[in-house]
Design a binder for these strands. Structure first.
Length: 424
RNA sequence: AGAGAGAUGGCAGAGUGGUCGAUUGCGGCGGUCUUGAAAACCGUUGACUGUUAAAGGUCCGGGGGUUCGAAUCCCUCUCUCUCUGCCA
């Protein structure tokens, strides 16, 4: 959520930012919000004035009662009746106004960083770099959804039987590969200084709200209605919410956490082309890295996270590229996002395997996640996170790019984690 | 799941209708003492809102009510703990 004070002070910059994100009607909505804010403050002042008078009277009455001056007390009581009505009326109006203001404010997305290119579609994302050679596969090369059947390592039909579409069963070396990748990613994160956490994978409403899944994207999460818990769509949600409503001592910054969770996404309305096999699932595994940083250092942290993720892809010997997302392709909450994509040689296209973002104060404002700066003032922190990494498309690329007549040759870095070198 | 108890500032823990935003201890910060540190002693130390700065207002789990006045009384919701039951 954008800060109302910033909206007041930097109105033009924010409108320009919202436009870059292709947010329609930005100027009008911002004007309406500032209008509401002005009314709110005026009303608040009136309310406070009445309240102050009522407080003073109550104190006087207390004094009179003590001295036994009942008549005097009764006289003052008469005056309070009117004040009470007024205060109640003001406070009701105020509540309504605040609700409207809040509702309008949460609808505004985060504003993009200056480096974010304009654009509406994924085609307009900026390719920052490409790394590694695109492998040349033999003519009879197969996509991963054929390979998993050939080697009987991932079974979609069995998942259909147990649960439904998008819930595959990993079997034999397929299951062991999952476990190996999770361990590899966690181990690399630990060596890079991220403290490992194992959070709950069901979260309450307040947590969903804190990271921005609620109230708008409710339909994207699985909801355990009996207890009103939500299945996490990413470890970002529980990990970031560990710091909700906290004022972090400055010397504890930056906070760096890594965690593995399964991720659950309903993906309502997003099924169509290019979602075969492992490309899109309702349940998948992911290791997430999270940083909480001082505002001045958050972009340094983003670069560092990007390099960490790239290091993983290099060790996995996968050809990848890094994109800087354009305004229109970024998430609602992000100020700057790098996407990492690996090349799938059999599908002949790039697959997104990581998304690494700086949210600046947008999440922190909702989370009330703050620290005391050098000047002693309490201020909002910056939150960042990135996938390091999401498994399914990594598995897809590993299978497709490394297929040989003898089987799938796994990259050397995974051998000790897997306990085998080939899938055959 | 049943019965009971509870929710107060970073933590512990007082406060059961009238200067209570809240006693006290610990912790934190500043100082005295010391070559330095520890100890001891002194001082200081919540958040939000508002303003050029104040004043003022709000916050004792959430919501509602009683009252001139609520941390304190009533209703309700949520959560936590203890015991019993079940169970990895």
């Amino acid at each position: 959520m954008l800060q109302i004070a910033v909206l007041r002070e930097q109105t033009e910059q924010i409108i320009a930012g919202l436009r870059k994100k292709n947010y329609n009607n930005a100027a009008a909505e911002v004007a309406a919000i500032l209008d509401l804010d002005q009314s709110r403050r005026t009303l608040q002042a009136s309310h406070d004035e009445v309240q102050a008078r009522a407080n003073a009277l109550a104190r006087e009455i207390g004094g009179l009662m003590k001295t036994g001056n009942k008549a005097g007390a009764e006289q003052l009581k008469a005056e309070t009746a009117e004040l009470k009505n007024k205060a109640k009326q003001y406070s009701e109006e105020l509540t309504a106004l605040e609700e409207n203001l809040q509702a309008a404010l949460v609808k505004l997305p985060n504003t993009p960083h200056a480096s974010v290119p304009p654009g509406r579609t994924p085609e307009e994302n900026e390719v920052l770099l490409e790394h590694g050679d695109i492998p040349v596969l033999p003519a009879n090369a197969q996509p991963h959804w054929e390979l998993i059947k050939k080697y009987d390592i991932i079974d979609f039909e069995l998942g259909n039987k147990i649960t439904g579409a998008g819930f595959p069963v990993y079997k034999n070396k397929g299951a062991r590969l999952q476990r190996a990748l999770i361990n590899f990613f966690l181990e690399e994160a630990a060596q890079a200084g991220y403290i490992e956490v194992q959070p709950p994978i069901l979260v309450n409403e307040a947590s969903g709200y804190g990271t921005g899944q609620l109230p708008d994207k409710e339909g994207q999460m699985y909801h355990a209605t009996a207890d009103n818990y939500y299945l996490v769509p990413t470890a970002e949600v529980p990990i970031t919410n560990m710091y909700r409503d906290e004022i972090i001592p400055r010397e504890q910054l930056p906070i760096r956490n890594a965690g593995y969770t399964p991720c659950f996404r309903r993906e309502a309305g997003s099924w169509g082309a290019d979602v075969r096999g492992l490309n899109r699932l309702h349940q998948f595994d992911k290791v997430e890295i999270v940083q909480i940083q001082e505002p001045e250092k958050s972009y340094e942290a983003l670069e560092e996270m990007s390099l960490h993720i790239q290091g993983l892809l290099q060790k996995l010997e996968l050809p990848y590229r890094v994109l800087r997302l354009c305004g229109g392709d970024m998430s609602f909450t992000s100020a700057l996002t790098y996407d990492m994509e690996v090349y799938s040689a059999a599908q002949k296209r790039w697959l997104e395997v990581s998304s690494c973002s700086n949210f600046e104060t947008y999440q922190a404002n909702r989370l009330k996640l703050r620290y005391k700066g050098e000047n002693g003032k309490t201020q909002l922190l910056h939150t960042l996170n990135g996938s390091a990494l999401a498994l399914p498309r990594i598995v897809a690329a590993l299978l497709e790019n490394n297929q040989t007549p003898d089987g799938i040759k796994l990259p050397a870095v995974l051998h000790s984690y897997c306990g085998f070198e080939m899938i055959n």
